[in-house]
Design a protein around this nucleic acid. Structure first.
Lengths: 355, 355
DNA sequence: CTGAAAGCGCTTACAG
DNA sequence: CTGAAAGCGCTTACAG
C-alpha cells in the first residue's frame, strides 16, 4: 500500500513526505497560509508541489465544498452559427476566470431540457445559462427556488426576478422595418415562427407596430419550428408569396428561415432586390457571400458573450450576498448590403429602360 | 443536524428512514441487488427513492470510483460548422449512453491544448476525443502512457498504436481531382494550408499524385492558418491567380479557404464555372445557396459522429481488457453542383455565340 | 505557527 | 439475505 498504481499524488502523500500535516499543505495550496504558516514552510511546500506537479482532485474538492467551477450553457442548437460563435467566446472568457463551460442542445424541446437540467443537478454545476424552450418558465422558477444561479440568454421573461442578457428584439425589428420603409419599400412581409419565445414574439410585435405606425398592412407568415427546414416550410412560403404578389420586401425573423426563404426565392427566379428586397436577423458568412449580399440585423456576438459571462461570474461571486439582478438588453446592429437597397432597383430599371 | 439546509437527500438519510443499511440502499441503486437483497426490500427501497426523487451525488461517486461519465471533445474551433455539427450529433449519441460531452476549442494552438488537457486531468474525464493541433504527438503519447483513453478525430498519426476516426483525405482528393479532369478541366489549382496535420497534408498529397498521374502541373498555394481569414490571405490568393492566368479550376482544401477564395473571385469578377471551376472540402448551407451552387467533397457528418462515439464507448467498456485499436477511415462524398460542371461552360459559350 | 480529526456521499470487500 | 466499516481526497472548525 505504499505506492498506488494510479500515478496521481495526494495531499496526504505530500504531508508525509515533508513531515507536515495535511492541514498545512491544504492551507498553502488554497492560499490561506498567510499569517498562519511560516514563510519558510510555505516556500518548502510550494517548491515540492511544483516539483511533483501536484494537482488537487476536483471531485474531492467538489464533494467537500459543493463547488465545481463549471457553468452550463444550454442552447437551442449548438450547431447553429449564432449559438456556436457565442459559445466559443464564452468558453474563452470563462476559462480565463477558472471556469469551464458545458454546452448542450435542447432542440427547443421541453422534455429534453428537463432531462439535461436533471443531469446537471446530479453533476452539481455552479450556474446555468439557459436559452429556454417554450413553456419553460415553471422549470426556471423551480431551479431558482432550489437556490441555483440562473441566467437567461437570447430569450427571457420580462420580469423583475430573472437575470438575463438579450437583444432588444422589439426595437431592432422596428429599426429594420423603418429602414426598409425609408428605402421606399411599400409592402413589407414578415416571415417568422409561431412561438411564444420572447425573441420571436418581440420581433413580430416590433414588425406589427412599425407597419401600423406607417399605415401599412401586416403581411406575415408564421411557421412552426419543425417546418422551417422541411419541404412543408418551403411550400408554405412559396404559397404565401403567390398569395401576396404585392410584397416588395421581406424580413426573415431568423437565419434558418432566411436560408429556407432564399432557396425558394431562387427557385422562383425572383431577383433580389429588383423583384423583392430581403433582410434577415443574424449575420453569417453566407449572407455576405450571397448574390446579392444580404442585409442583416446582426447581434453583437462578442458583447453578448462578454455580458453573459461577466454577469454570471458576478452572480457567482455574490452568491451569498443580497443580489441585484443582472438584466442586460443590447441593441442590434443593422448591416446594410445590396439586398435591401431600393436605389439598386432604380439603377436596374434605368438600365432596362435603355435596352 | 437533523435536516440540512441543502434540500438534497443522501443514501444515509434513506437508510435511516427505511431502517436499512446504506449498503443495502447502494446495492439497490446500482442494480447489484439481485440474489443479494430480497425482492420485498428492493421494492420498498425503489419506491422510496422514486418518491423522494433521490439522485446520487456524482462527485462522491467519482471520488470513490474514479469514473465521471464524461468525455472531452477537443476540436480546433467549435464555431466551425463542420465541428459543431459533428459535436451536436455526438452529444445526442453520448447522452443516450449515459455520457456527456464537454466541448472545447484549441484554436489549433499547442499551448492552449496543453492547458485544456491539464484542466481535464484534474477533472478526471473518462476519455479524450482529440483533434490535435500541430506538433502534438508527444502530448498524445504522454496522455496514453498515463493510461488515458484517447481517440483521435479528423487528423491522426498513421501508426498502429493510436485510435482514430478520420476521413480518407488522400483518396477523397484524388477522386475530386479526377472528377475535374474528367469534366475537361486542364489546369487545376490546389489552395491549401501550410501544415503537417494529416488532414491537410494528405489532401495536398492526393492532389499532387492525381495531377502527376494525369501529367498535369502542380499549381498550388499554401497559406498559413492565421492568414486564411485575413486580408493577407485574400491578397496572396489574388496574386496567385494573377500569376497563374491559365488556371481553369480550383480545389479549396477547407471550407474557410473556400469562403475567403469565393470573396476574392467575386471581387475579381471571375465567373464560376465559366472563367474558373470551383470545388471545396466540407459542405455548408452557404455552398448550396451560392450562385452558382458550389460542388463539395462532403464529409459524412453523422457517420463520423457515430463511429467516434461508438468507438470511444467501446474503449471505455473494454478499459480493463486487452484492447484492439479503433481505426476507422471513412470515404468522402462528392456532391456535384454547377460550380464544377464543364458542360455549363459549353452551354454558356453556345449562348454567347448566338448573341 | 501547526496538527488531529470530522465529515462531504458514496462503493465495496468482508463478515455473518 | 443484510450490515458495519474503511476509504476515495479534500476542507475547515477547533484545539493547542
Amino acid at each position: 500500500m505504499k505506492k498506488k498504481n494510479k500515478s496521481r499524488i495526494s495531499i496526504k502523500e505530500i504531508a508525509k513526505e515533508l513531515n507536515l500535516s495535511i492541514t498545512t499543505i491544504s492551507f498553502v495550496i488554497n492560499n490561506k497560509a498567510k499569517n498562519r504558516i511560516s514563510d519558510e514552510v510555505i516556500a518548502k511546500v510550494e517548491a515540492y508541489i511544483e516539483k511533483v506537479g501536484y494537482k488537487p482532485n476536483s471531485s474531492a474538492q467538489t464533494l467537500r465544498t459543493g463547488k465545481t467551477n463549471t457553468i452550463v450553457f444550454m442552447v437551442e442548437d449548438i450547431s447553429d452559427p449564432f449559438f456556436s460563435s457565442v459559445a466559443k467566446e464564452m468558453e474563452e472568457l470563462a476559462f480565463n476566470s477558472g471556469y469551464r463551460i458545458i454546452f448542450c442542445s435542447t432542440e427547443n424541446k421541453k422534455s429534453r431540457a428537463i432531462e439535461l437540467i436533471s443531469m446537471f443537478k446530479d453533476k452539481q454545476v455552479d450556474a446555468y445559462i439557459i436559452t429556454p424552450p417554450e413553456d419553460f418558465e415553471g422549470e426556471i422558477q423551480k431551479l431558482i427556488s432550489e437556490n441555483q444561479i440562473v441566467m437567461l440568454f437570447d430569450r427571457f421573461y420580462n420580469k423583475a426576478d430573472y437575470n438575463y442578457v438579450v437583444l432588444n428584439n422589439f426595437e431592432a425589428t422596428k429599426k429594420t422595418i423603418n429602414y426598409l420603409l425609408g428605402e421606399g419599400f411599400e409592402n413589407i412581409a414578415f416571415i417568422g415562427l409561431e412561438s411564444e419565445l420572447s425573441t420571436l414574439f418581440d420581433r413580430f410585435e416590433g414588425y406589427k407596430e412599425a407597419v401600423a405606425i406607417a399605415n401599412k398592412n401586416n403581411i406575415s407568415l408564421l411557421l412552426n419550428f419543425e417546418d422551417v427546414r422541411s419541404i412543408k416550410g418551403s411550400d408554405l412560403f412559396d404559397e404565401f408569396l403567390n398569395n401576396n404578389p404585392n410584397i416588395d420586401a421581406i424580413l426573415f425573423s431568423t437565419n434558418s428561415l432566411a436560408i429556407t426563404g432564399l432557396k425558394v426565392l431562387k427557385r422562383k427566379n425572383l431577383e433580389i432586390p429588383l423583384d423583392i428586397g430581403v433582410i434577415t436577423f443574424d449575420d453569417r458568412d453566407l449572407f455576405e457571400l450571397h448574390s446579392p449580399p444580404i442585409t442583416v440585423m446582426a447581434q453583437p456576438i462578442s458583447l453578448l458573450a462578454k455580458e453573459v459571462i461577466n454577469g454570471t461570474l458576478k452572480l457567482l461571486k455574490d452568491k451569498n450576498k443580497v443580489q441585484n439582478k443582472i438584466q442586460v438588453v443590447l441593441e442590434g446592429d443593422l448591416v446594410i448590403r445590396k439586398s435591401s437597397k431600393h436605389t439598386e432597383i432604380e439603377i436596374k430599371r434605368t438600365k432596362m429602360t435603355r435596352v
